[in-house]
Design a protein around this nucleic acid. Structure first.
Lengths: 237, 237
DNA sequence: CGGAACTGTCATGAAACTGTCACACCTGCA
DNA sequence: TGCAGGTGTGACAGTTTCATGACAGTTCCG
């Protein structure tokens, strides 16, 4: 897997907790960036894009959840996994956090070990490979730099919306999304669109993937939405 | 959460150490499975999924670290916490062990007391509720992220209602619910439905679980309702 | 200006899903 | 043994959900 040490950004206003986390992560061989508030966090991210972000829910000024929303809006940061540190436990918070784009939660108080476990779990889940601008899934390659799609060398043409949709799906492979979530993430926010619109774009994307015989990578989750899953060849072990 | 005794799989080639560990764990009221090498370990895991694995770093044949990688690759096993037993002390080994998906490690020589403490710590942190969106019960995995159900890797198709029903049951395993309670929890409120409707959905869910031969996980509680209980394999019947 | 590409919405039919029923079956009890 | 209430099972019709093709409005170019 990735032989380089992952970089973790810790956004937390309480110095004691921040230092504790920093110590634990450092011991585990991770690069650590520290930030005391959202402002510092943004600066830090701009300087060096972290592989994962640990973020306190409650912070002076811009809250963790608000910062998450902002990060999710920018292409440069939207794919960074975020783990929320929170004292809250209610279902509502959980839901709104997940909607905002959080990948996991750790509820205070937590042990350094638990934190490490979560970080590893999230990274194992969301790090497909080393990221040089390409996302690869069973021969389907999406190049975020040239903004092109190809399958086993053969170029595939997709429209702008289909491209964004595919990019979102491929960088969150395996995960099921409702139509509402897809509208939030793939279309610019604040635009109200019919949910059926998603269906049509899925259809167009499938059509584009059809010549490569991989349209089934886009799976329908009945009663819910869609999911991208590039199934490996069904071969016995 | 699980009040039942945890099952611990010990993978260790040195008989003396293995016996010592087995004795200590048994005294602490834990179920113990033993394996002398990776091969035996895989067989044992297939027979009964352990709640945690103690694994020697150095073993003849497939090493502990390699076995860890393999286990992390399979959905059925990827969530089992692993504690590595090692004589090595260098930083490098420590890091690569963690990267491979190990949850903790104990350096030889160690005391039974230390071992138990580590086991309890790891289990405490990896059990809490929706671990990483997966609910696992004896090989039956419900993934709330991808919204899929599978048994020992084999996907299982269930309809939307059956999915919600199973999710509810699995996150309240062992508990018996009346038909009325199930209607309240699984169906959206304010809908009046015939109580027998529950029976039919139970039936459909059982049918879906039938190919995996685990339809008996859904038990009938006569005169009351139903209960989900994934029983470990009973030897003979 | 004109065409090509793209976008959002809609109508339609097929497929999946849902709730209900009738009847078979099973269990405990008189 | 027969009865009575509870549960399993298959069938069915109504409903919901989704795939698909069409269409009109837009934008983006030459």
């Amino acid at each position: 897997m990735s032989s380089v040490e992952p970089t973790v950004l810790v956004v937390e206003d309480e110095t004691a907790i921040r230092d504790m986390i920093a110590f634990a992560l450092d011991r585990a061989g991770m690069q650590v960036q520290l930030a005391g508030d959202a402002q510092e966090a943004l600066v830090s991210i701009n300087k060096k894009r972290p592989d994962i972000i640990l973020m306190d829910w409650m912070m002076p000024g811009v809250s963790g959840i608000e910062l998450t929303r902002r990060l999710r809006r920018e292409p440069y940061t939207e794919d960074i996994p975020i783990i929320m540190l929170t004292a809250r436990v209610s279902e509502d918070d959980k839901v709104s956090g997940l909607e905002a784009g959080t990948d996991d939660y750790v509820i205070k108080p937590f042990s350094p070990r638990e934190l490490l476990a979560r970080i590893r779990a999230v990274m194992r889940r969301s790090t497909p490979a080393d990221n040089n601008g390409q996302i690869n899934a069973e021969g389907l390659v999406l190049d975020t730099i040239s903004r092109r799609v190809s399958h086993q060398g053969e170029p595939i043409h997709v429209g702008p919306t289909e491209y964004r949709l595919l990019e979102f799906f491929m960088s969150h492979a395996g995960r099921a999304y409702s139509r509402g979530q897809l509208l939030d993430h793939v279309w610019s926010a604040n635009t109200y669109l019919e949910e059926r619109t998603v269906d049509v774009h899925i259809r167009r994307l499938r059509k584009a993937l059809e010549p490569a015989r991989i349209s089934h990578y886009l799976q329908t989750v009945r009663g819910h939405g869609y999911r991208f899953l590039a199934e490996p060849r069904t071969a016995a072990k």
